[in-house]
Amino acid sequence: MPPSFEVSRRSLKWRETRHLLLTTAPGALWIVIFLVLPSLYLVSMAFMTNGPYGQPGMPLSLDAFRQLAGFGFLGWSPGNLYTLLRSIWQTIVATGLVVVLSYPIAYYITTCRASLRPIMLLAVVVPSWTNQVIRTFGWMNLLAPETPLSDAAQFLGLIPEHMGLFPSSFAVTLGLVYNFLPFMVLPLYAAFEKLDTTLIEAAIDLYASPMRAFWAAVFPQTLPGLLAGVVLVAVPAFGMYVVPELLGGGRSMMIGNLVAGQFTGASNWPYGAAAALLMLAATLIGIFLLRRLGKRAGGGEEVVI
């Protein structure tokens, strides 16, 4: 046996490591430099003081967090707390509506001819390929005063005269549902496609009632897809900026608008950074909880974006 052999084994291992570095390091570094470092800078900014021109600087302080918690010159105000709760509430409502609206559609697509299915999925997805500003603009046109929808709402006494359906919380919910519906249809469709139909037939035999068969045999099988969809919908919905900005008024502001406001108009970067941290923390907690739920539902690692 050549004595160099053991050495060459070691060099093989090094070659593999070098290959790993050569392939993944450029992209990984890119993400580190242009997302991780900026995020860390943002974190540090939250502990700085706001300068006279809205620029962050020394000394370090917790002012931003105090302000975020609602303590200002005029004592405590619950405004930010309301904004956070409103964001969570809007996310839950919109996600729930998306689930209810998508579930039958995903099922319906699987019952159609196999050659039609890709076209149908595409038909659902295409609107989400257009720019979200344009989509939202379309709804602004539809919900404006003196449009058929607004007139109908006035006729029913839902809104006062000469008013439109937007700006309002209702419009924000509508915008969120509209934006994220396709994100739910795709994973649900994938779950329905994999559905074991013999189980359903067995369940119909066993339980007689179609409702009970559904809850016993169908729903559990689609749960992993449903949870994947919930992650895909709830995470971006919670962080949404465009829809509440255009369709909601001051009283339907979500946390994204609170953050953005500190960097566009009001210019208090440490305060904005602290709000961004809160938003990030809430998002990560949400994902963590949904993953826990997913694992318990037997979805395992299926929650893939």
């Binding site: 990984a28 993400i31 580190v32 242009f34 997302l35 991780v36 470092l37 900026p38 995020s39 800078y41 943002l42 900014m45 962050p56 995470v235 971006p236 919670f238 962080g239 900026y241 994204g256 953050v259 953005a260 960097f263 970067w269 904005g272 950074a273 961004a276 938003m279 990030l280 998002t283 990560l284 994902i287 974006i305």
Partner: peptide, 20 residues
Amino acid sequence: LIYLPIVMPDIVFGIADMTF
């Protein structure tokens, strides 16, 4: 690291890059 840009809310992503 790869999932980070996907789960990061756009608005946080945007302002982090802007301030950086």
